[in-house]
């Protein structure tokens, strides 16, 4: 680089700096705001970035000082080691099966329940709805021991049904669907369908379900992500390796009794476990945010 270019660049830089300082009263505040936001953003992203980086390094490089900051070239060896340690495809499919079927059941039961509370006037409706709301106040932790014992009595230890069936018709989902129905389903529509002689099921699936699509999306995302990431219940229920969901598989790898922890392979498995939801989130972040915080946002 010639001295003249350096000179020109520094002159331009000084002019820009002077211009910035001249407006510092106005924009100083804004800059400090951006600095705060960027620092927090860095704090949020660095763990992800470092996880990606470590997944491409061998274990001995990970435990060296200074730690690696940039991508290495040990990806394929880590991948091989990971495949020897755990069956990640199996775990992925387990997670998918459990989260998928649980979510499908939740959407089905909660939408018909919410629809019934919103659109029918039947004796005892208000009392039953108050009971439903009250159940949301009960901390479920109180029954965790009998719950577990019941599961073992049902033969549901090591059975994914224990994670799929309970909670599939849950109070929050019904409440939420009811609110959505009240606000979005015109009763004239149902009356018209009734007059045309549609059966109740046909009305629900042909007329109501399409209107509920946004509610399905939000409740579905919330249920799926929470089930996908859940750890405590699967830990109590799924005791065998071939049934492990992704979080259980990761925990098993962390303390792998047969091989010890290969940190590079561990981080690669971490990355692969996080990636599907991460990609889905980045493509539809708006829906994820409104879905996962749906419980707090009043209709």
């Amino acid at each position: 680089m010639s001295t003249s270019t350096v000179f020109i660049i520094s002159v331009v830089a000084i002019i820009i700096l002077l211009y910035l300082f001249s407006r510092v009263a106005e924009i100083g505040k804004k800059i400090s705001l951006y600095i705060i936001l960027l620092l927090v953003a860095a704090f949020m992203i660095i763990p992800f970035y470092w996880m990606f980086v470590l997944s491409t390094h061998p274990t001995n490089a990970i435990f060296k000082y200074p730690p690696p900051f940039f991508f290495g070239n040990n990806f394929s060896a880590n991948f091989k080691s990971m495949m020897e340690s755990v069956n990640i495809v199996r775990s992925f499919l387990n997670s998918l099966l459990i989260s998928g079927s649980h979510t499908a059941l939740v959407l089905f039961f909660c939408s018909i329940g919410g629809y019934a509370f919103a659109m029918y006037r039947f004796p005892g409706r208000d009392q039953l709805f108050v009971i439903l709301l009250a159940t949301m106040m009960i901390p479920w932790t109180a029954g965790i021991i009998p719950w577990f014992f019941m599961m073992s009595r049902f033969g549901w230890i090591n059975n994914p049904l224990a994670l799929i069936i309970p909670g599939s018709a849950n109070a929050f989902g019904i409440f939420w669907m009811r609110q959505y129905c009240i606000n979005n389903v015109p009763s004239s529509l149902i009356d018209a369908a009734n007059i045309e002689g549609c059966s109740e099921w046909l009305i629900f699936f042909r007329v109501i379900a399409p209107i509920l699509k946004p509610a399905f999306a939000a409740l579905g995302i919330m249920t799926f992500v929470n089930t996908w990431n859940d750890f405590m219940q699967p830990m109590l229920i799924l005791r065998e390796n071939h049934l492990h969901t992704l979080p259980l598989m990761l925990k098993y790898m962390l303390g792998d009794p047969t091989r010890g922890t290969d940190m590079g392979a561990m981080m690669l498995a971490n990355t692969l476990a996080v990636l599907p939801i991460l990609i889905a989130f980045l493509t539809a972040s708006k829906y994820f945010m409104s879905g996962l915080t749906a419980g707090a946002i009043k209709e």
């Binding site: 763990p47 259980l248 939801i277 996962l292």
Partner: peptide, 12 residues
């Protein structure tokens, strides 16, 4: 960006 950790498995 701030919401990213929420969708991440607590174990990972």
């Amino acid at each position: 960006i701030y919401f990213l950790p929420m969708i991440t498995s607590a174990v990972a």
